[in-house]
Design a protein around this nucleic acid. Structure first.
Lengths: 268, 268
DNA sequence: GGGCGAATTCGAAATAGCCGAACGCGCTCG
DNA sequence: CGAGCGCGTTCGGCTATTTCGAATTCGCCC
């Protein structure tokens, strides 16, 4: 057995299950661009014998994370939709936020979405379409280039935010995206104090967003609620939108058991 | 190490990866009713040592199928939402069907949904809400008690349908649900010849549906499109609804490359 | 501060995964 | 029409990996 070029490094590995990690690698292969894979292709991509790739694919199919097509190739399995549903239904903040989102979307006919922090990025949890779609469920955004991202990092300590930036960088999406760490720090402080965040054409040109935090009973920011609109419409109704999002997020937070102003508490 | 009551049966199991199968079992635990699990609970539920449960949870967390909460307990991971999105976006029939669904939903203001067959049941792939919601994305329905189910099994050979019935039975949801295999066979034939299916208060009381098949370029039924409405509304517009769903499903099928009447072809 | 109950770490025993090689099948091309 | 390729699948022995009891640490409540 050689592992000439395979990088084991000097790492004394953690006690994770190698087989399951490999299964994860296999799942990673399935993307929108390349949604269908055969045994040989997987083996080549992951640099493993065909027999091993076969076992992984067969087993993942058995547990319904993949499915086999008539041509003996594999795709993501329908069970993933059921998992997503279970996840959403069991996430308290999303269940609570749905009403508020329907309300907001109905009132302004603009896109509304709910997002949370997953690792180093923002995931869109639920969305309501408006004139334009800002983010679909499951879509990922970067923390520095979205209103929800700014709200969510405002709930983290600055050193943690720095680590995210180190790992992911600050790529620019439009001419207005924040690309300098100092600017992000400035923004982080602003959002912390004012309690909501803008993203003015920083994600996509012509798209403006406001987002406000949703907190749980411990006061932790668990999600962010956002309204998006075309730049001209946004500017026309800015005050309205800001107020509505903040109001909505407060309502949701309160329903989650958050008691505002835990500052200066008569502790004990 | 006893396996006294554990059913190994006589099966000489396939060469599946036991570790990954166990990971699947772990994922199965996470439900809406019980969305959060600790190491000890998982170990008890799956009858394994705590150390083993720990490794599984840790590894599943590493590949983002689970996430760790601050209280050291685990929940389904946000990555599942991203997988669901990838799955949907890479499913040709759903991408094609979206327009048709928006159109239908907008025209009648009634619930519309798209479903496909997964194993022995029907999964809702995409939905548009109407006055009432018939099925959410990821929700599962039984083949005998839904319009989409009937359409989908009409694409299968009868013996295969029988196997599904044997495995899953014909539980009743309302007084009108089909509960006898002979009745299902009758319905199966009707749907095959007429090309669409009803479910008249067979899933939920007061809910009526019509569904029509979506076929791929090989003529295989890959999905079913359905419109649902309250019983009274449904009856009032029945002809309209039936025609619209059929038309919509034909359009989608054609966009997928299905050429109607592949029968009596002047082959070559 | 002592003492549960929980998660986490350790390490030897042995099970289960790994993978080279052989097989079978459906195409395509000669 | 048959040889040859490329693919998925099966086999089986070597050994790396997983397994799991026991020891350790962590966090919380009394």
């Amino acid at each position: 057995m050689r592992h000439d070029d395979l990088g084991d490094h000097e790492t004394r590995r953690e006690q994770l299950l190698g087989t399951v990690l490999k299964a994860g690698k296999v799942l990673d292969l399935f993307t929108v661009e390349r949604p269908e894979w055969g045994v040989t292709e997987v083996a080549a991509s992951l640099d493993m014998p065909r027999a091993s790739a076969y076992q992984l694919l067969a087993t993942l199919t058995e547990i319904d994370l993949l499915r086999r097509m008539p041509n003996n190739r594999y795709r993501l399995g329908w069970r993933l939709l059921s998992f997503a549903r279970t996840l959403l239904e069991s996430t308290e903040f999303q269940v609570e936020a749905v009403r508020a989102m329907d309300d907001l979307a109905g009132r302004y006919r603009q896109a509304v979405y709910l997002a949370t922090l997953d690792d180093d990025e923002v995931v869109c949890v639920t969305n309501r379409e408006g004139e334009l779609v800002a983010a679909d469920t499951g879509q990922r955004l970067m923390v520095h280039a979205s209103a929800v991202g700014k709200v969510l990092i405002a709930g983290q300590a600055w050193p943690d935010v720095q680590h995210i930036v180190e790992r992911r960088g600050l790529p620019s999406f439009t001419g207005k995206t924040i690309t300098h760490p100092d600017d992000l720090h400035q923004e982080w402080q602003t959002v912390r104090t004012q309690g909501y965040a803008y993203a003015l054409e920083e994600t996509q040109p012509n798209l403006c967003c406001v987002a406000a935090p949703i907190r749980d009973q411990h006061g932790r920011i668990v999600a962010a609620l956002c309204v998006s609109a075309r730049a001209d419409i946004f500017r026309r109704h800015e005050q309205d939108l800001v107020q509505s999002v903040r109001r909505a997020s407060h309502t949701v937070s309160r329903n989650l058991g958050y008691l505002p102003r835990p500052s200066s508490p008569t502790k004990k």
